[in-house]
Simulated scan of single mutants.
Amino acid sequence: MATAKSFSTPILFISFLLAGSCLSSANETKIKANVTIVNGLAYGFYRYICPQVEVLVRSYLRQVFSRDVGQAAGLLRLHAHDCFVQGCDGSVLLDKSIERTELPNLSLRPESFQIMETLRQIVHSQCGPVVSCSDILTLAARDSVFYTGGPDYAVPLGRRDGVTFPRPNQTFEDLVAPFAKTTEIITKFARKGMNAIDAVALSGAHTIGIAHCSSFSERLFPNRDPTMEISFFNILRQVCPAPNFNAATSLDIRSPFRFDNLYFVDLMNRQGVFTSDQDLFEDLRTRGVVISFAANQLLFFQSFAVAMTKMGSVEVLTGAQGEIRSRCNMRNSDNINDLVSVVEKDHMGSSFAMR
Rank of each mutant, 00 (worst) to 15 (best):
R109E: 13
G288R: 13
V306K: 14
F84I: 07
S326Y: 04
S8L: 14
E344T: 13
N296E: 11
V85E: 05
T36W: 07
S231L: 09
M311A: 15
D68E: 12
F65W: 02
A295Y: 03
I122N: 07
M348A: 13
G87Y: 03
A154C: 08
L339N: 09
S97M: 00
N27K: 13
C213L: 08
K345S: 14
T138N: 13
G193S: 11
P156Y: 07
A201P: 07
S91H: 07
Y153K: 03
A196S: 14
L12I: 12
T182D: 09
F232G: 00
Y263V: 02
Q63C: 06
P166C: 02
V92C: 11
E99V: 03
Q238H: 08
E282M: 12
G288H: 12
I136F: 08
S215H: 05
I230S: 13
E102V: 08
F45W: 13
L262G: 03
F300V: 00
H206V: 04
H79Q: 14
D346M: 06
L137S: 06
S215K: 04
M330G: 04
G44R: 02
L106R: 15
P222G: 08
V53R: 12
G40L: 05
R109W: 05
S66Q: 14
K188Y: 09
Y43I: 10
E99Y: 01
T275W: 00
M330R: 15
F257H: 14
I49C: 05
F216S: 10
S217H: 11
L139E: 09
I208G: 00
A205K: 08
I291M: 12
R47D: 15
T249G: 09
T183W: 05
C328M: 04
D198T: 10
A2Y: 12
A307L: 10
F257Y: 15
Y147T: 00
A320S: 14
R325A: 01
T29Y: 02
D174I: 02
T36F: 12
V130K: 10
Q52W: 03
Q297H: 03
A248G: 15
M1L: 13
F300Y: 15
P256E: 05
F146A: 02
A2E: 11
V155L: 13
I324S: 04
L251W: 06
E315I: 03
L23M: 07
A177C: 05
Q170Y: 00
S350M: 14
A248P: 07
S125C: 09
M308A: 12
T207H: 03
S91Y: 05
N246C: 05
G204Y: 10
V130M: 11
F274Y: 15
D225C: 00
V38R: 10
A294D: 01
N234A: 12
N332K: 09
R109Y: 06
F352D: 06
S292L: 03
F281D: 04
I98G: 00
G70D: 12
R47H: 09
F257N: 08
L61T: 06
L175Y: 06
N329T: 01
G90E: 05
S276C: 11
V38W: 00
L94C: 05
V200T: 07
D161K: 01
I208A: 02
R254L: 15
T187G: 06
V289M: 14
S125W: 06
A201T: 01
I122Q: 08
S214Q: 10
S112I: 02
V239Q: 10
Y263E: 06
Q86G: 02
I210E: 15
S292K: 07
Q86Y: 13
S134Y: 05
R258G: 01
G209I: 08
A205M: 15
G158N: 05
D174G: 03
S255R: 13
